[in-house]
Structure formats: C-alpha cells, structure tokens
Design a protein around this nucleic acid. Structure first.
Lengths: 199, 199
DNA sequence: GTCTATAAAGGGATAGAC
DNA sequence: GTCTATCCCTTTATAGAC
C-alpha cells in the first residue's frame, strides 16, 4: 500500500515539475526570463506559485532546472537530423533548418540565446551551459570524424576545431536569419559549411 | 543673446541625452534590459527619472534611442580593424578580437545579443536592427570585394553570401568563446574564415 | 504537495515645483 | 529642462489552510 501511494505522489510531483519546466521553456523563450513572472509560469502550467516555490525555490531555480533538462535533450535533438540523411548536403541542411524553421526552431534559438545571455552574466548558469556546448561540439566532432572516414575525405583541421566553426556558422547564420530571413539563404549556409569541411 | 542661451540649453540637453544613453549601454549590457530600472540608469548618468522620461518617454524609448546610436557607430567600429592591416590574417584576427577581447569586446557582444533578443521578439526593435545587420554585411561585402580584387583572388560565392557566412562565424564563435574561451582558439577561427574566402 | 491569501519590496510613470 | 515626491501596480516570497 505505502509503496503505491508513494509512487502516485511521486508521479504527481514529477508531473508538476515537468509541467512547470515546460511552461517555463515556452514563456522564457517567447518573452524572456525577466519579463515573465513566477505567477505567469505557474498559471501556464495550471499550478500556483506555491508549487513553483516548493519545487524550485524560486524563478532562478526554475531557470537552472530548465537548463539541466535542456542540456541533455536539445543537444541530441539538434543533431538528430544529422544521422538520418545520407547525402552530406541534406545532413547539413537538416541541422540548419532545425534551428531556423517553424515555431520549434524559432523558439529553440530564442531560448538558446536567452540562456546564453544569462550564462554570460552569471557563472551559475554559465558553467552548465559551457558544458552543454562542449557536449554538442563533441557529438558534432564525432559525427564529422565518422563521416570523413566513410566519405574518404580528410578534414582541413582537427575535428574539434571544425566543430567549433560549424557550430559557429550555424548559430551565427540563424541569428541573422531570424531578423532578416531572405538575407540568409539556406543554400548559401550549406555551401559555407561545405567550405569548412574542405570540399 | 537668445541664440547663445538656446545653444547652451541645447548643449545641456544633448549632454543629458548622451549621458543617459551611455549609462544605458553599460547597464543593459552588463545586467540586461529588464533587470535594470529606469532609476538605476538615471542615477548612473547623474540624472533623475524625470529627465529620462522627458527625453525618451520611458525605458523602452531609451532602448530604441540606444539602438539608433549603436546602429551607426558599432558597425564601423567593428570593421575599423579590417582596413588598418595589410595581411589578410591580421585583418580577420583584428575583427574577431574586437568582439572577444577585453571589456570592450565583451560588453559589445552582450549588448549586441541583448538587442538581438529584443529585436527577435519586438518588430519595433527588429526592423532597425535588421537594417543594422544589413549595413554591416554591406560594408563587409564591399571590403571583401576590394580585397579580392587587390589580392587577385576570386571569392567562392557572391560577396553578399560570403559576408553572411563571415559574420556568422564571427558571431557564432564569439558566442562560444564567451562561455569557454580555451575551446575557441583565435587561430582556428581565422583559418575557418580563410576557408570561407576560398584560400 | 498544492492552494489561497497576504506581506513586503520594487519598479514604472506622473504631477508640480523650481 | 530637470528634480522631488508620490501614486499605483506588479512581483517575489512566505505563512497557514486543506
């Protein structure tokens, strides 16, 4: 009996936690951390501020928890498209479009930059965030190494340096794209990425 | 007499305006727009909120005015190093270091991203900001065209597309650099930029 | 564990004095 | 034109009920 009750309570708790983090992702991305009140997040999650404070101790704690979830999830999300295609151009285009296309990509980029801005100002956020970027680059470097071997191509620089540049182009072009979509053609971005790989 | 009095008043007014914008640049970059109160900006400028409201109508107006100043100034600032060097590597390195090095570069990047985030959410900011980026790219494209002609090199893509990619790498690498400096070596960035130019 | 109610603080904006 | 004083609203955080 006790085990069952406990499990149910745990589930409820986990559900509330997930709801709050989910609502926070959405609102922080759309309006920004400081522009969103703890109450607004709670309401969007169909809970109250009491629950938020019980779980995270405050808005700041919620942001930190959000980052931890984001850290594990989004890195693989971003690179999911990379493994699914066969042609290199398709792979590169898939990754770029994951950042720029539709609502999903748009809010991804917004939340990414929102977190970056907080990380750049506050080491508590910056530390985990830096590890997150290192993780993405590591996955990317591995993917590039595998690809280079299979394709019989040698990278122009170390996989790590190449990953920095590739990620840089992706982020930097997505940033420009968001303000002025026609100015940043997808094809041009893919061609630039090819340059970095030495093709 | 009247002319002199008017000029003095105009000077006072211009001085207050400049002080407020200056203080706002600094504080918005360091702490973020929403985290800074109108009173904090006024105090840092040795003025009061009354003056701020008289000049800009509010905090939002101050942000907009800041963007207009930023728009004209920072674009040329950024590319100033580009024209001063003779070697291409030095030129590229100078531009990258202008974004990453020291306090000046650090706060440049922070304010840039702060403005971008507002621009991505609010068309009132996004419009002018998009024009600002277009202006930077245009200057960059011209510089690259001139350079290619002088150096007897032909760019791999149109100057416009090349400028998008170059600016993308610069911003994208600077973003990574800020969180984790050792992970983004200046030399690797310069070499990546060379790739994009077709060298 | 979550909600309701509320205390305490801070911020944006304005009116009127100078 | 700028400052002082102040109003009103929003927000954070907590205390106690269920």
């Amino acid at each position: 009996m006790k085990a069952e009750v406990t499990r149910t309570q745990d589930q409820r708790r986990a559900d509330t936690r997930a709801r709050l983090i989910d609502a926070a992702s959405d609102l922080f991305a759309r309006k920004g951390f400081h522009a969103v009140s703890a109450e607004a997040v709670s309401a969007a999650a169909d809970r109250t501020t009491g629950a938020l404070y019980n779980h995270f101790g405050g808005k700041e704690g919620l942001l930190l928890a959000l980052l931890e979830v984001w850290k594990d999830q989004a890195a693989t999300d971003l690179l999911a498209g990379f493994g699914e295609m066969t042609e290199l151009d398709d792979r590169l285009a898939a990754v770029y479009e994951a950042i720029t296309d539709g609502n999903r990509g748009a809010s991804w980029l917004l939340l990414e930059m929102e977190l970056w801005l907080h990380g750049a100002r506050d080491p508590h956020i910056g530390g985990p965030l830096a590890r997150r970027y290192a993780g993405i680059r590591s996955l990317l470097a591995d993917g590039l190494t595998d690809w280079a071997e299979l394709a019989g191509v040698s990278l122009r620089r170390s996989p790590e340096h190449t990953a920095v540049a590739v990620l840089g182009v992706l982020i930097g072009c997505a940033i420009q794209h968001r303000l002025d979509p026609p100015a940043v053609e997808s094809r041009a971005v893919v061609e630039s990425l090819r340059d970095l790989l030495g093709l």
